[in-house]
Design a protein around this nucleic acid. Sequence first.
DNA 1: TTGAAAGCGATACCAA
DNA 2: TTGGTATCGCTTTCAA
Lengths: 380, 380
Amino acid sequence: MVSTARPNHHEDPDNSTGKGGIPASPRGGRPRSGEGKRRPTIVDVARAAGVSTAVVSYALNGRRGVAEVTRERVLRVADELGWRPATAARSLRAGPGAAALVAVHDGAAGSRAASTLDLVTAASEVLDDAGVTLAVHTAGTVEQAAHLMRRWWAERRYAGFVVTGLRSDDARLAALRHLPAPAVMVGDPSVPAPPAWRSVVFDDATAFAQVGEFLADLGHRRVAMLTGAEGLLATRRRATALAGALSKAGIDFDAVTGDGVDRAAAAVGSLLSSGSHPTAVVTDDDVTAGVVLDVARRLEIAVPWQLSVVAGTDAAACRLTTPSLTAVPYPVERLGQAVGQALLGVLRADGAPNEKAPPSVTVAAGGLVVRGSTAPPDPR
Amino acid sequence: MVSTARPNHHEDPDNSTGKGGIPASPRGGRPRSGEGKRRPTIVDVARAAGVSTAVVSYALNGRRGVAEVTRERVLRVADELGWRPATAARSLRAGPGAAALVAVHDGAAGSRAASTLDLVTAASEVLDDAGVTLAVHTAGTVEQAAHLMRRWWAERRYAGFVVTGLRSDDARLAALRHLPAPAVMVGDPSVPAPPAWRSVVFDDATAFAQVGEFLADLGHRRVAMLTGAEGLLATRRRATALAGALSKAGIDFDAVTGDGVDRAAAAVGSLLSSGSHPTAVVTDDDVTAGVVLDVARRLEIAVPWQLSVVAGTDAAACRLTTPSLTAVPYPVERLGQAVGQALLGVLRADGAPNEKAPPSVTVAAGGLVVRGSTAPPDPR
DNA sequence: TTGAAAGCGATACCAA
DNA sequence: TTGGTATCGCTTTCAA
């Protein structure tokens, strides 16, 4: 009875897959290119370790109920054979073990691309340890992003999604809500969240209020903000916070939209050309702040004496301009880690609503980094 | 023997999976969170369309041997039910239908992030039509990237890989060669390619030679290039091409490495501070060119009269600096499309070496975009 | 042109 | 603690 134990339905004593031989092309589905080596399966590992496949699976997944010696032997054998569980097979039973971030990559968002990858890098570190992978994809518009997520959810390709750069009236929210898919919203606190969602809030509102106080303390009376893409909730939130702090000090505030570098340049141009231009300009990101510096230079407006500039997002480039840019710190790494943790939370929340994890985590921006682009206004 | 064929060992006549009801929680693997709606499977579609699952599969995949009416009905029903084939199940038989690009994302590569996503966006358009998806992941070093690809290959997660930013002695090459996995190499012609690889070559060598001629024609006699990360084959190739063209005209050439914005700034600083500094500087990317402009301004070196600057990679920012930057075009979109096509080629090359597809495609850079940062040198 | 059913490679239940 | 095996949802022979 011991030797009959193999589940080989076609009477085939000692010949089919055994033998140690390497069948050029296993009977079933053609292995995609790369031919040659047949990759080992759990059966190979089980046989080599002299146990059943169940034990291999248990050992691999660190479940209890496997003798320590057995576990070690199995893991060693698996390692020797270079075996890793096939994602497809695993997903088929247990559901997908990956999540996706679909970056809305319209031309204007160029500078955000780098930080998206930084965010993912940080998140992946957290996720790796839990065996979850996070993939990045791109879409031209929020609608396309929503479409992709819908499709991939239907295909059971991903177990959840990460959403960044929320817009007002964002198509992705509706899509995710209807699927309904676990999701992590990055950046905004104002989104009503179903239990399957978590959000990682970047507290730039506080930081922008600080910017307002900072500029007020310096003595500025006319401040403008050059905001990013129209619908972005983040830019609106920042503008509101800034406006609030300034109005409290009785300071004149103006917001101008400059979506994408070209339009930003145009907007700054007309803003600074006017007779009584503001004495301080706050931008959303580092690239736009660079544009402001350049336009000011062209108009012969001296920074920081005639014009103070604050970059809304700090980056390496902010240190290298002349003058270097005062900026709001952007803690991508901490944000990414928080995203990773939140994602693990939603993915594990297997329909267990009693989960104690907070639906929202806030990452503080930290204090303004003051550099050379800000000063008291020229008292002319 | 015919009726016994079903491997249902527990006698279970007419009760197991049939019945049409929608079990709240199918007996098998717990469906990951999101509970509620059970997503339809091919069986549901087959039943609703009154055909077998085989027909549904054939219809979906556009194989011949299905009556046109049947095909249409099946597709309509599938659409009504919102059915999409589960990736896991499909992959299990047919192999993975996705490929990955692992971006090596060291701090210095910040500016390349945007173009990586642009590349992927363009490639995805081509791939989508063929039902292939391309995912982006990040890794801190080439070794980590190699590690990830090895693992994902063992897990049958991806059918192939896209490799960008090749380095000399690149760990990824060795890893991929040993797997052996289908791959598309972006950017370099010098890599010996196994049959399962294709390469998309960006012909910046020709473009950089043109830059050399252009500067020679303007009358420059001392030219320097600020190269990117040490090991990058692309930057080396560019430097070589530039050096070649310049030496042909008997012009002095010097290459300085400035990996990352900070070191780039330092390198430019010492380069321009020397008594007899070059009259023209060529950089690898747009960001570094911006740094050159800034350093020059600080040292009161007038661009373009006392110093000409050429950006090795054109980008939106090059138009907005003062002066605007003369640059080598970077046709990301065409590169991405080529990558998509090449990827389809390697993935389809199911161990069929008689495939007629060229192992390498070259994308031309196009003519130098001359803007305001270049001029004849000051004849002082 | 269609249907029946054998896998693909894991996980997880139930018995031993 | 371990083994046997049904099951996940497709694709793909092989017969009808």
